[in-house]
Design a protein around this nucleic acid. Structure first.
Length: 594
RNA sequence: GCCGCUUUAGCUCAGCUGGUUAGAGCAUCAGUUUUGUAAACUGAGGGUCGUCGGUUCGAAUCCGACAAGCGGCUCCA
């Protein structure tokens, strides 16, 4: 049932791709349409354009689409011979290329005609063009795209549209996009004073303000406290490394272009570390290890550097310096399952605490593309078998198949978090690595006194703190729970009376003693204005100190609207109030609604 | 890196087709006010209009290069 609906909707979307192609070709003589699939939420078509189009042209194209739609009724299918196809699409080299490919593979050549528009297409349209509601689609953006998704091939122009069954559903979707704009972490990062970028420092190099740094610290503490429960040991490594380490790990071969390289004055080649595994292997390999010591679990929160393509950079989601909450478990094959399950527990607890729903992707090698990976097919299959076994235990069959999504050194269990407005982001990862232990010759001495090859599990919970922050800021819309809030209590003075200001700063000092982040606002502004300022900064608790409070020693806290508390507007003694907040902070109580 | 778009004060934005000392709101600072739960009043300071070059009698405005940002593509250990 659900599938039939999906089929119908994607038929509408795909049909709209045809309609858009027809409109563009009519408006821009010389335009050549290429592929035009239905995608999530809509459709796109790639064109070779005689002149570049911009977003301002979209309404015009949209109008043309509606005009043409009136003249369409059916999508008529017919099979054609290769010769016939060559004639019909002689004007369009892209269609010709696809045509020759179909012919080569012995597949049927099908041509669809709707109105006056003729296209080479494998099908999947609505039966009747009138089942497309002219008010339930909208063209949204134009962008570049490569023919056949290949960077070395012709750059085309892609026009995206969104489409739904009804105008109401379209409106709903557009409203969601507006909400996404409000939650944009780059915007909130500035408004809430969390991080900045500087032209002087460079693109992709985020600078965290004191407030942003609190968030990072708190999130990291949360992960590391859980890891400590599982006997991880913290280690510490330098941020530059000799080239040799990356030759041994295999990274030099695959990622040489993305390394920030350094040549020393004596001519030795170093690189900024793009990941931490080689360093951690060398701590393990510093002496011989007995099987009795295993598993050995190292953890470290540390920054990595990658020279990402400039066009890839975006806010905190993709940066050139990012901090990983990294961990490596060195263990025997027989220990992999138990260790992976422990990591999985930490991941569940972490994401559960923020109300993220997790999906699991089993990221495996692509057998058709073995040159992208280290190690032989048999080892890959056995490693993947182990991971799959773990996945089945945890989630049965409800995982996504990620063929070709593996790291070059091993398969992964990737976790995708679904955020408050329904978007999915890749976050945590558990990776099984049988290649680097070989590259670095990692062994343990086993029961029979022989050296035995061990395995490595790479495990990042947040992945990169920066990326996690980008996801979490948008998920929470900046309304952080009390334990995370950069500023937890703002103490507002009613006026600038000396006794009141003194009292307020005493309360702040008391709060600080309890480990709280509290500030005093004794500006010469109205109380209303000061409340508003605290509200804008999304401070969880605001208290006003006036003569009344000074005399009674009681206060009535004002609580940020999304936080669910029972005794909000009741007076508390100051001591009681601060202790309650301190307790909430310590136990990471999360009472916000998303 | 590629395609398209954008760049005016700390922030958000005006500035029509090139024409005297570039504007507003918020923020900042100063003075007045001393305030009871989402914006007190008055005034002041702040911009070589992203950078460099070109066209022109004249450039924030037109053209080019570069930089940064945005939307995608490609990539992602």
């Amino acid at each position: 049932m659900a599938n039939e609906q999906n089929d119908q909707l994607s038929a509408i979307r795909h049909s709209l791709a045809h309609l858009m192609a027809a409109a563009v070709i009519e408006l821009y003589p010389g335009a050549k349409n290429t592929i035009g699939p239905a995608i999530e939420n809509g459709f796109y078509t790639d064109f070779e354009m005689p002149e570049p189009i911009s977003e301002e042209d979209l309404p015009k194209i949209e109008q043309k689409m509606r005009d043409i739609l009136k003249t369409w009724s059916k999508f008529e299918r017919r099979e054609a011979t290769v010769e016939e196809g060559r004639e019909v699409f002689a004007w369009n080299p892209y269609k010709l290329e696809m045509l020759e490919e179909l012919a080569k593979n012995g597949e049927a050549i099908t041509i669809y005609t709707s109105g006056e528009f003729v296209d080479l297409c494998r099908g999947g349209h609505v039966d009747d063009a009138h089942s497309i509601n002219p008010k339930s689609f909208k063209l949204t953006k134009v962008s570049g795209a490569y023919w056949r998704a290949d960077q070395t091939k012709q750059q085309l122009q892609r026009i995206y549209g969104v489409a739904f069954e009804t105008p109401d559903k379209l409106k709903e979707y557009l409203a969601m996009m507006e909400e996404a704009k409000v939650r944009d972490h780059r915007k909130l990062g500035q408004e809430l004073d969390l991080f900045v970028f500087s032209d002087l420092i460079g693109p992709g190099l985020p600078l965290y303000t004191p407030r942003g740094t609190v968030l990072r610290r708190q999130l990291d503490n949360f992960v590391q406290e859980m890891r400590d429960e599982y006997d991880y040991q913290e280690v510490n490594i330098p941020h530059i490394t000799k080239k040799d380490a990356y030759i041994a790990s295999g990274h030099w071969k695959k990622f040489a272009d993305e390394l920030f390289r350094i040549t020393t004055r004596e001519g030795h080649e170093f690189a900024m570390k793009p990941m931490n595994c080689p360093h951690h292997t060398q701590i393990y390999a510093a002496r011989s290890r007995s099987y009795k010591e295993l598993p050995i679990r190292y953890r470290e929160t540390t920054t990595c550097y990658r020279d990402e393509q400039s066009g890839e950079l975006s806010g905190l989601s993709r940066v050139r310096a990012f901090t990983q909450d990294d961990a490596h478990v060195f263990c025997r094959i027989s220990q992999v399952e138990e260790e992976a399950l422990k990591i999985w527990d930490i991941i569940d607890r972490f994401y559960g605490a923020f109300g993220f729903e997790l999906k699991v992707r089993f990221s495996t090698h692509d057998p058709a593309n073995m040159e992208s990976y280290s190690g032989g097919a048999d080892k890959w299959e056995s490693a993947e078998g182990q991971l799959l076994n773990i996945i089945k235990q945890k989630v049965g069959d409800s995982y996504i198949d990620g063929v070709g999504e593996a790291a070059f050194y091993g398969p992964k269990i990737d976790f995708m978090a679904k955020d408050a407005i329904g978007r999915e982001h890749q976050v945590a990862t558990i990776q099984l690595d049988f290649n680097q232990p070989e590259g670095f010759d990692l062994t343990c001495v086993n029961e029979t006194g022989d050296r035995e090859r061990i395995l490595m599990i790479h495990a990042a919970v947040m992945g990169s703190i920066d990326r996690f922050l980008s996801v979490y800021i948008e998920h929470s819309a900046g309304k952080f729970p009390i334990w995370l809030a950069p500023e937890q209590v703002r103490i507002i003075t009613l006026n600038q009376d000396e006794a009141i200001v003194k009292f307020a700063s005493d309360v702040a000092a008391q709060a600080k003693k309890l480990g709280l982040r509290a500030t005093v606002d004794d500006d010469n502004e109205s109380v209303g204005k000061k409340i508003r300022n605290a509200e804008i900064m999304k401070v969880p608790y605001t208290v006003v100190i006036g003569q009344k409070e000074v005399e009674s020693g009681e206060l009535t806290p004002r609580v940020r609207k999304d936080i669910e508390v029972s005794a909000e507007h009741e007076p508390h003694t100051i001591d009681e109030f601060l202790k309650t907040v301190a307790h909430e902070t310590k136990s990471r109580i999360n009472k916000t609604s998303l």
